[in-house]
Amino acid sequence: MAKIIVNGETQEVLLPLNLTELIKQNDVSQPDMVSVQVNDDFVDRAEWDGLQIKEGDIVDFLYFMGGGM
């Protein structure tokens, strides 16, 4: 088990785990609608599969929010 922080909260996850799998585990229903930052750097969608999560990673999901009117 590895401890990581997702959206400010500690999670325990089983490694190996890539970013796409972590997104799925966190019930992100529309991955198209999320932008992901790992350890303060944005990760392009094309790199999600190849990015392996490691102990202590800080992951933030930023959601598109388009309303205003």
Binding site: Q30, D32, M33, S35, F42, L62, G66, M69
Partner: peptide, 14 residues
């Protein structure tokens, strides 16, 4: 933060 708009139709608005 968000490179480009999400795919049309994927997006609920108010």
């Amino acid at each position: 933060m968000f490179k480009e708009p999400p795919p049309a139709g994927a997006v609920p608005t108010c």
